[in-house]
């Protein structure tokens, strides 16, 4: 296996958290991983990126130029990600904040209204986990159970948040598996 994932979104959407979580889960599954966060001057709300490479070989580049998977948590990141995607790659789009049409026909797109689904769970701040669940449904790089195990090892404010995070993962996973919304006109 060799997968290269880029996640983009606003600061505060938990972009780094889900990247780190997936890297942690893949690491525990025995894969080689690199988690490369983008970093910038401290500013809330700026664009945040992270690159996650998962492989069964020694990993070279820390950065990804042609992702095999991506999650666009907002419109700005979708605009940047779409042209970068490798053919046959998987692009997960948070339709709640990135409703625009996608023109690429050579990639697989999974759209989930991550913020809306998260809000239904009672907290729109878990939209990131909804999106990650959707990614896993599209391409099972690690078992869902491995992600929830990794989640338990991550720093969490409290038990309730942990449960909420797990539910968000499952909701995203189920939604993407069962009724992925066709994203705009393909």
């Amino acid at each position: 296996m060799h997968e290269e994932l880029i996640i983009g979104g606003f600061g505060g959407q938990g972009v780094l958290f889900i990247g780190r979580l997936l890297a942690e889960a893949a690491f525990r599954e025995g894969h080689e991983v690199v988690f490369m966060p983008s970093y910038g001057a401290e500013k809330r709300g700026g664009t945040v990126w992270c690159h996650v490479t998962i492989s069964d070989e020694e990993i070279g580049s820390l950065f990804i130029t042609k992702p095999t998977m991506a999650i666009a948590m907002n419109s700005a990141s979708l605009i940047k990600l779409e042209p970068m995607m490798k053919p046959e790659s998987l692009l997960v789009v948070n339709q709640s904040l990135a409703p625009q049409e996608i023109s690429r026909a050579d990639i697989q797109v999974v759209s989930v209204p991550a913020n809306d689904l998260a809000a239904e769970l009672g907290d729109s701040s878990v939209s990131n986990l909804v999106a990650l669940g959707a990614l896993l449904a599209g391409r099972p790089v690690v078992p869902l159970a491995s992600l929830t195990t990794a989640l338990e090892g991550m720093p969490a404010k409290n038990k309730e948040l942990l449960q909420l995070n797990k539910r968000a993962l499952e909701v995203g996973y189920t939604r993407a598996q069962k009724d992925a919304v066709p994203h705009g006109r393909r």
């Binding site: 080689e32 991983v33 690199v34 988690f35 966060p37 990993i59 820390l62 950065f63």
Partner: peptide, 10 residues
């Protein structure tokens, strides 16, 4: 460098 400083690996 900053890239290696930030990158997480096993």
């Amino acid at each position: 460098d900053g890239f290696l400083g930030q990158a997480m690996e096993p």
